[in-house]
Nucleic acid binder design. Structure first.
Length: 420
DNA sequence: TCTGGGGTCCTTTAGCAT
DNA sequence: TCTGATGCTAAAGGACCC
């Protein structure tokens, strides 16, 4: 049986763990740059704050309804996530960490009663050790476990946060209940298509003709259908290295200035290098893009990107900067107000199995240099060693007006408990 | 003023070689 | 040498996820 474990309102719950005053309070957490709402507590959902709401349009409502607002604090969320995943790993060796707040687990050899008790213990353990509430859905396939999880979360009083689709009858009941748009793998485009055919619930989707689904929704759609029917087509995915690594950001304002944009793009390339070295990969392709503000009416939307093939696989930040600059200069146009830029590296090879081309210009000194820089930055703090292309004064800024402390990863931010 | 960031997989298409 | 059929690969774009 597959179990899907999902943390409830994860980011909002993390903020709450270290700040008990927030219990039962409406909370929202904002994206980078304090752009839009990416997490909401149940109370905030009840007040009608939609997912993805642009923060600037909701500021009044936040104040009026006394909603607590937080900038995203990824150091905190990442650390809490690691703790939770570690605990889950104690309950089964077969675990796929699917996202920062979700894991698929596989349980074999349990009878159904035994499994339910096991899961109850697991839920208690996580909640006691971390303070983060979770929901668990269990079924024959990953897709059905997603459905079960939804039921667990939607009816907590009834399910206690754990729901098993353990019989054929329950499977049918669940699919009859689940709206098409809430099926895992059905996004906006497919939703439109299916609803245009008059379908409303998941069971109607499973009654479609296989050939139609294959033709209109590709093999992905067909696999989905099988999974909902109880036939397993998806496996637990082993932990793998990333096949692409991206570092992209929106700017606080719009910029035309090439020197500013160059600095940002170089910094993104450097961060891509750090991420590559962390997973011990080299890349052989780098893609740089620039975008203008896509929400601005009356102005043409610019969105240009170009990929550059590297002459040899590398994870040296110096190399990446060099090629990122070449790419940037090919796409940059003066007179355009840019709002966002990014660097994406791909075509990975393992660092240790690197095949050196005959006529490379690769500098053998880069590797030990990068190792030293990474070590210094790790032990002494992120910005200890920076590169000449970077803005050493850190003049660029991200809006983060509501940042909480790094309660669990920074000694100076640890919470104090005061006697009254 | 102010609308995120980081991924995966699949299909289509263009270019190239046979 | 030209042409069409076939097959491969890479890039681009579209769908999805959190």
């Amino acid at each position: 049986m597959f179990a899907l474990v999902d943390c409830n309102n994860f980011y909002a719950s993390c903020e709450r763990v270290f700040n008990p005053n927030l219990r039962n309070q409406p909370i929202v957490v904002l994206s980078n740059n304090d752009g839009c709402v990416i997490a909401r507590s149940n109370e905030a959902k009840a007040l009608g704050i939609p997912m993805g709401a642009p923060a600037f349009k909701f500021e009044k409502i936040f104040k009026q309804k006394n909603i607590q607002v937080f900038s995203s604090n990824y150091a905190l969320y990442g650390d809490m996530s690691a703790r939770i995943m570690n605990i889950l790993g104690e309950f089964t060796p077969d675990i796929e960490i699917y996202s920062i707040d979700e894991s698929f687990l596989y349980f074999k050899g349990f009878d159904k009663i035994g499994l339910e008790q096991h899961l109850e213990q697991m839920k208690k353990r996580v909640e006691k050790s971390t303070g983060i509430p979770i929901s668990i859905g269990v079924a024959q396939t990953k897709t059905l476990s997603k459905v079960a999880n939804r039921i667990a979360k939607k009816y907590p009083q009834h399910t206690g946060g754990i729901y098993l689709i353990k019989t054929e009858k329950l499977r049918r009941k669940a699919l009859h209940w689940l709206p098409i748009k809430d099926i895992w793998g059905i996004g906006r485009q497919h939703q439109k298509r299916l609803e245009a055919l008059g379908l409303q619930k998941a069971d109607a989707f499973t009654q479609l003709d296989d050939a139609w689904v294959r033709k209109n929704m590709s093999v992905v759609g067909l696999r989905l259908k099988k999974e909902l029917e109880g036939e397993q087509t998806l496996d637990l995915n082993a932990l793998t290295d990333k096949k692409a690594i991206a570092t992209t950001r929106s700017f606080d304002y719009e910029y035309e200035d090439l020197s500013y944009i160059t600095e940002r793009v170089c910094s993104f390339a450097i961060v891509c290098g750090e991420k590559l070295r962390r997973q011990e990969s080299c890349c052989q392709s780098i893609y740089v893009f620039l975008k203008s503000n896509r929400f601005k009416e009356n102005t043409a939307y610019h969105n240009k990107g170009i990929s550059v093939q590297l002459p040899y696989p590398t994870n040296s930040s110096l190399d990446l900067v060099k090629f990122a600059k070449i790419a940037l200069n090919k796409i940059y146009q003066s007179g355009i107000a840019y709002k966002k830029a990014g660097v994406i590296v791909s075509k990975m090879t393992p660092q240790n199995a690197k095949q050196t081309a005959l006529f490379t210009e690769e500098n053998p000194k880069h590797f030990p240099l990068m190792q030293q820089i990474d070590a210094l930055n790790q032990s002494l703090g992120k910005h200890t060693v920076m590169f000449g292309n970077q803005d050493l004064k850190h003049r660029w800024k991200m809006r983060q007006n509501h940042l909480s402390q790094n309660y669990s990863t920074k000694l100076t931010d640890i919470i104090e408990i005061k006697a009254l």
